[in-house]
Amino acid sequence: MAYDYEKSIRPGKLPHIWCPGCGHGIVMKGLIRAMDACELDRKNTAIVSGIGCASRLPGYLDCCTLHTAHGRAAAFATGVKMSKPDMNVIVCGGDGDGTAIGGNHFIHACRRNIDMTYIIMNNFIYGMTGGQFSPCTPTGDKASTTPYGNPDPIFDISKLAIGAGATFVARTTAFHATQIDKLIAEGIKHKGMAIIEVLDDCPTTYGRRNKFRSVTDMMKRLKDIAVPVAAASKMTAEQLEGKVLTGVLYKEELPEYTAQYADVIKKAQGA
C-alpha cells in the first residue's frame, strides 16, 4: 500500500510551489515519515523556517508552523523551545538561509545544544531568488552572480555544526531518500541540537547553469559523491577527494539547554 502522506498535509495546500525535480519535496516526505515514526503529536510540534524555497516547507504540514524571516529560523525556534520546552521543535531551511544570513543564529543554536532538529536542505544555491551563489556553492561553479565561476571557498555545513557544538550531526542526500527519515527520526529522538544536512538539487537555478542536463544527472551526482562514514574509514585520502561523508557524523550526549535552564529556575527558587 502506498504510504499515507496526506494525513500530515494540510487540506487544500497542494500543489506545492516547488519546481518539478526540486529535491525539497523529497525531504518533506522524509520529514513526514520521521514524524510518523516518532509518533509526534502534531498539535505539540512546531516547525519553524526562514525564507527561501526550502523554507516554504512548513506551510504544507499540519502542525504549528512558523515561516519567519530570512536566516532567523533558529532564533525564533529558540524562543519557542525556551518558552515551551515540552514542544517538539523542528527547524527547516536552505543552505543560504542557515549558513549565510542566518549563520550566527545557526552556530549559537548549535553551541547551546538546545533540543531541536534542524533540517538544512543544501542545494548549493540561493534557489528562490534565481540562483545567486551561496556559502555552499562549489568553488568554480556558475551562479547568476558568479558569471566567471565562483571564487569563494565553501562551508561544510556538517563540520560547521560539529565545530559549533551540535551534539547530533548527520548528512545524507535527496538520492538516498530512505535514509532521510531515519536520520531525521534519530535527530528528533536525540536530546539536544540535531543537525540533519540533506544535499539536494535545484535543477532550475543551479543545474542548468552547471551543465546538468537533467534532474537524473543531478541525482546521479548526489549518488556518486556520497560515501557512508563506515565505508570512508577504509578509503584513502585520494579516493575521498570530492566525496562527502553521509550517515551519522557525530553524536554525543551533553546537557541540553532547556534542561540547564530548568536548573537555573530551581536555583533561583532556592531549591
Binding site: 525564533f76 518558552s83 543564529h105
Partner: peptide
C-alpha cells in the same frame, strides 16, 4: 526573533 517565537 526569540521574543516573537516565545510570544507565539
Amino acid at each position: 526573533a526569540s521574543v516573537i517565537g516565545a510570544s507565539l
